[in-house]
């Protein structure tokens, strides 16, 4: 269930950034989410489509960049990416002194906005009629 408040967070961060920059429409939101953060992409987009209705973010695409968690072996030094459920042993030397870091990222990296007046609402891919 926590995808709902997470999505509210994404929307409010994006709307605030758009307002500060005088943007009229948000076309896309770039998110950085760690592999260990426990968030389901499809679920967030589903909630987002509902929550963003009648805002300037309606129809925006959420783009997820997944940041891996890294494990480092304390015995042989081998480094590899991990996700849950974590492995208990190093795949190279079989050592069990692993150290996992990263994978907890959880932020809005950027938003893509259209600063033109949205003439045809709900159609972010429309051709621009003028020169610019």
């Amino acid at each position: 269930m926590h995808e709902l408040p997470v999505t509210e967070g994404i929307l409010s961060v994006a709307l605030e950034a758009a307002q500060q920059n005088g943007a009229r429409r948000i076309m896309a939101i770039d998110l950085v989410i760690g592999e260990l953060a426990g968030i389901v992409d499809d679920s967030v987009q589903f909630y987002f489509d509902i929550l963003s209705k009648d805002t300037i973010a309606e129809g925006a695409i959420l783009r997820f960049r997944r940041e891996p968690a890294m494990a480092a072996c304390g015995d042989c030094g081998h480094q590899f990416t991990v996700e849950a459920p974590l492995t208990a042993v190093c795949p190279v030397c079989g050592g069990i002194r692993l150290h996992v870091s990263g994978g907890r990222e959880f932020f809005v990296e950027s938003i893509e906005v259209d600063d033109e007046d949205p003439g045809s609402e709900g159609d972010p891919e429309r051709e621009r009629s003028g020169g610019g």
Binding site: I10, A18, F107
Partner: peptide
């Protein structure tokens, strides 16, 4: 146009 944000998703809660 891309606008950099870099803000925690749960910043309102934080």
């Amino acid at each position: 146009m891309k606008i950099p944000v870099v803000k925690e998703i749960l910043s309102a809660n934080d």
